[in-house]
Design a protein around this nucleic acid. Sequence first.
DNA 1: GTGCATGCAAACAGTTTGCACAAGT
DNA 2: ACTTGTGCAAACTGTTTGCATGCAC
Lengths: 176, 176
Amino acid sequence: MLQVVAISMTNHQIAIDSLKETGHRLTPQRVLILEAIEGISGHVTVEQIHQWVTKQNPTIDQATVYRTVRLLSGLHLLNEVVLGGVSHYEYADPVSRHHHMACEHCGCAIHIPTHYLDKLQLQLKNDTGFEPHMEHFTISGLCPDCQLNTNHSHSGHRHVHRGESRSPSHPEVQLP
Amino acid sequence: MLQVVAISMTNHQIAIDSLKETGHRLTPQRVLILEAIEGISGHVTVEQIHQWVTKQNPTIDQATVYRTVRLLSGLHLLNEVVLGGVSHYEYADPVSRHHHMACEHCGCAIHIPTHYLDKLQLQLKNDTGFEPHMEHFTISGLCPDCQLNTNHSHSGHRHVHRGESRSPSHPEVQLP
DNA sequence: GTGCATGCAAACAGTTTGCACAAGT
DNA sequence: ACTTGTGCAAACTGTTTGCATGCAC
């Protein structure tokens, strides 16, 4: 009788298998990029990935990273989350699905459990016929800290501008 | 006794008043831009606004449009809605508040009444302390038409690429 | 060996900005 | 007059692409 063993595989190992299964080539660049996305916690930008992989192999080009994350998103191995105009990527691990709420001011983001949006998703689908893709879904707002710091000087809504790319003060908080 | 008369003002008239009240100058360019945003229905891009105003005054620069929509957003006279990576603007008329759901494939967008998100907004605020800004809020997905046309060739999620800027087949549908 | 993947550089779109001049108050 | 707003052009960021070479299969 066959024994099914639950082996805990890392996300990048799963992704490597998927790549091969779908007939794509397993290059050292791709492996490094996959490891980078796992190594850096949270949702990462192409630039962050590039900096990480560059430490291992300084010749890897940013274009390769762009092409790779695009490929991986297409294979549903990564989710793309756009925060403040820049694409961020994270493993599309189905067991840890969540949504995002990002602070417009400091750029920090928290995870929101899927159940918060389940009814909404169903409602929208029923009422509109639209098929909402909640994976690519981010609510913007102000985090508690920034609410205090910006209540007065509130001149305009688009706080996270191009290139500001601020490092969040409390990057990843988990909800109950 | 004073009589309060409800005069129906157009959005751009209101905006003109707000500009003066906040000490900004009323230039012909700004007036034209305000009229354009009202003249073109739905959420409009800077390029659309520029094309419109150019017909009245061919010397108006795109930079002026950018500066103006930024100013107006800052004064909460416009809402900024980012669809497929490009900023769209619409009057922040409080009586017609709504949210958006945009099709990733064809770029069309429908309006979603605010009540769909009221409970979610409250819930999130209570549970996380985040102050969600639902005005800047768009759910992406697939419209009914594109669900039929893309069920098979579903290779990747980011369908609306830079520069594609497709014209929606059914741009603005109103929900019950 | 064949064809996909990479590195490099150049292009691209959307957006922002520095500066001299124009124009609203 | 004083200052803000404009037009123009140039810069900038994130991203895509064409092409010759390199490497996984």
